[in-house]
Design a protein around this nucleic acid. Structure first.
Lengths: 187, 187
DNA sequence: TTGCCAAGTGGGGTGGTCCTCCATATCGTA
DNA sequence: TACGATATGGAGGACCACCCCACTTGGCAA
């Protein structure tokens, strides 16, 4: 689905419909929503869904693309912040908040490394954006050495995943994130 | 399967076989292994599996029961350790190590709160054992206030879950745990 | 020891999932 | 308008969790 210009108009319209339906259903029921039902809601056959998005991950990437881009933009903004360490932590909190708010985003962010062949775009984008923040924070001595951006994002995603089925998910995620993130600072 | 005495001899034998087969298959393929195949391996019909373990969670509880009990015993031992704070952290690390070594244990530990009606035993056992360690550590001023044992276990489980599909899972889990656990100490 | 019946079993059915083929319908162009 | 490349979706295969019910079996009472 990278070269969207090459798609025929109806095909592109269907792809958009599928992404919209997927977004709605994933918000309702989580990242493991039924692909059949997504197709049903989008008003297309299941074969069409599978041709457009050969793997579930590809669909998730499309659904969350704009949110990931927003997070990347925020990372860019924070590069100009006064305190490099606080900038990184603030960004991680923002990533966590987004992951909690958008069910399934956290899982999507992590699985980038899993299937290197297809997609991985979300994971790559967010990793690239965060890396710059981490490098700057590290240079300022605001994070302890040896920590990678992939580790930090894994931590954030894991927390959002763990609190996904909680009655009081967002608040609990915030608290857990607070604990975990404090370990990032040098002793 | 709580009142095992009330089961007929053959029923109990089948239940044990199912738990053994489940343990093997879960170790191979993770906690979402097919129940049909577990039944097949155990040499019983799928109906038998479902009657003994009405929900997947119930089966997981049975599979991991001994490991959870070992962790609870370890918690008991650590209650006598000199440094209450270090005792708690050491135990959390042990829980993490077990969760990583036994695929699916982490997920099982977390889901206790999800379905209050059935099971929850693993979750309750481990929570109870950890609570004592936490209370002692808190009294010694070794952990910052406001942290609950459920939060700590959620953190540990989340990390083990997140690293489950990693090429270098155990080592990475150890590192992430190190980061997260440092946030437990008071500032 | 024998006979009986509650307890236990598993094949087969239901309804769901993901994914693939291929005959058909549609778009965009010449 | 006519045509061919492109896109579609229903039908179907393989798998899954879970349930029903005709049958078997263990263990107790006589």
């Amino acid at each position: 689905m990278s070269p969207r210009q090459q798609l025929r108009a109806d095909a592109r319209r269907n792809a958009d419909r599928i992404v919209a339906a997927a977004g709605a259903l994933i918000a309702e029921r989580g990242a493991d929503a039924s692909l059949e039902e997504i197709a049903r809601r989008a008003g297309v056959g299941s074969a069409t869904l599978h041709r457009h998005f050969p793997a579930r991950q590809a669909l998730l990437e499309a659904v969350f693309k704009d949110r990931v881009e927003a997070l990347c933009a925020k990372a860019g903004d924070l590069l100009a912040a006064a305190d490099p360490g606080e900038a990184l932590l603030a960004w991680l909190r923002a990533v966590g908040a987004h992951a909690v708010a958008n069910r399934g985003l956290g899982a999507s962010l992590m699985r980038g490394g899993g299937d290197p062949a297809l997609g991985g775009t979300c994971h790559d984008l967010i990793t690239g954006a965060g890396e710059k923040l981490l490098v700057r924070a590290r240079a300022a001595g605001a994070v302890r050495p040896g920590i990678t951006i992939v580790q930090l994002l894994k931590l954030v995603s894991a927390i959002s995943l763990a609190t996904e089925h909680d009655p009081d998910g967002p608040a609990e995620a915030e608290r857990l994130l607070g604990i975990a993130i404090d370990g990032v600072r040098p002793r």
